[in-house]
């Protein structure tokens, strides 16, 4: 009897531990595009009360031609006119998978990666960092508007 209880307790502990480990590993990176969108939208709403993400504004940001970079004036320069299509780095020629999660399910699921690329490419294309509002609009366009 005691043995059975102990064994049950042990195996519960083990299962809990195993679950904790499995959860802990991907937890640092795994997210859904909707979660990412919500995080940026919440930050934007703290700056601008009543903020609502807009796929339309996201589409405008995606297509807009800036003047900061001659070779990469717009997001669309490397990502093509549609985020559902594969693109190509304008300088290095590196193939780029589609940005829209509908075409490339791994997109917008890794917060650190998303932040890294927003930082890098907003600076490159617009000459400044993007705001939380712009990031929220952009992801809404990627997930719903494209």
């Amino acid at each position: 009897m005691l043995k059975t209880v102990l064994r049950a307790a042990l195996s519960t502990t083990f299962v809990t531990l195993a679950a904790a480990i499995t959860l802990a590993a991907p937890a640092a990176s795994a997210a859904t595009p909707a979660q990412l969108l919500n995080t940026y939208a919440a930050e934007a709403a703290r700056q601008t009360p009543g903020f609502q993400p807009s796929a339309q504004r996201g589409a405008e940001l995606y297509a807009r031609r800036f003047t900061a970079s001659e070779k990469m004036p717009a997001c669309a320069t490397c990502h093509t006119d549609s985020p559902l299509q594969a693109g190509r780095h304008a300088v290095t020629g590196k193939a780029i998978k589609p940005l829209a999660p509908r075409a490339e399910p791994a997109r917008f699921t890794d917060p650190a990666k998303v932040e890294k690329w927003f930082r890098r490419n907003c600076s490159e294309v617009t000459g400044r960092e993007c705001s939380a509002a712009e990031k929220a609009d952009f992801i809404r366009f990627m997930t719903e508007g494209s």
């Binding site: 190509r88 290095t92 590196k94």
Partner: peptide, 11 residues
Amino acid sequence: TRVVSASNCPA
């Protein structure tokens, strides 16, 4: 257009 740059070895 499929290559773009010499550094694009995989092309």
